[in-house]
């Protein structure tokens, strides 16, 4: 819901012809990632809070290993993100008439960026659920960790749109490396958060 609202607000106020041709690839990739990140953050924060509020968290603690819980939550979040991207990205491209020179590279950046986004935020969501002030804390904690990923993805989308040579897809590699490292660290650290 948040995603659709921001998307409409952005495309309504900016339109597809306000921005000069030369500026477009850069500004569009920034806007796209801002919409994606913030709508993802507003949804993902709920993943563990739900359990805490429903009181099912103790049952989960007894019945499943922490790694399994983490992977389950991660899978759920990634599915959510995938659906979100599937909805936002095509409509963004259509509404803003976003021209992309390398569609393959663009899609790869979007997918790997989504993976990184999910991996970086899941463990933060687990911590938030057990803190006393939840509201703004999730974004405050997630954004600093996500910023390197966001910068990389914005650059990647920009380059895919302009069509600068992208041999080896460096941005995709960085995003995938981020994903792998975040998952490894989360698997190591999650049991500590979970049992506390």
């Amino acid at each position: 819901m948040f995603a659709v609202t921001t998307l409409i607000a952005v495309s309504f106020s900016i339109g597809s012809f306000r921005i000069e041709e030369a500026e477009r690839p850069f500004l569009y990739s920034v806007l796209l990632w801002i919409i994606l990140t913030f709508s993802a953050l507003s949804g993902l924060a709920r993943s563990f809070v739900k359990e805490e509020e429903a009181g099912t968290i103790d049952v989960l603690k007894l019945s499943a290993r922490p790694q399994a819980v983490f992977l389950g939550k991660l899978l759920f979040n990634l599915t959510l993100l995938g659906a979100l991207e599937l909805m936002i990205v095509p409509s963004f491209i259509l509404l803003m008439s976003y021209q992309i020179s390398f569609p393959g590279f663009f899609i790869a950046v979007i997918i790997s960026g989504g993976l990184g986004l999910g991996a970086g935020t899941t463990i933060i969501a687990a911590m938030i659920a057990r803190a006393s002030t939840r509201g703004a804390l999730f974004s405050a904690l997630s954004l600093p960790l996500l910023l390197p990923l966001m910068i990389t993805c914005i650059k990647g989308c920009e380059r895919a749109a302009i069509g600068i040579s992208s041999a080896g897809w460096p941005e995709v590699k960085i995003a995938v490396a981020y994903f792998v490292i975040m998952i490894t660290m989360s698997l190591l650290l999650f049991p500590l958060v979970w049992e506390e």
């Binding site: 463990i123 933060i124 911590m127 057990r130 803190a131 904690l141 600093p144 960790l145 390197p148 981020y178 490292i181 975040m182 660290m185 989360s186 650290l189 500590l192 958060v193 506390e196």
Partner: peptide, 13 residues
């Protein structure tokens, strides 16, 4: 514990 976990996550990035 949480501060420690966050510190390590931050350091990884």
């Amino acid at each position: 514990v949480f501060a420690g976990v966050y510190s390590i996550l931050a350091f990884v990035t």
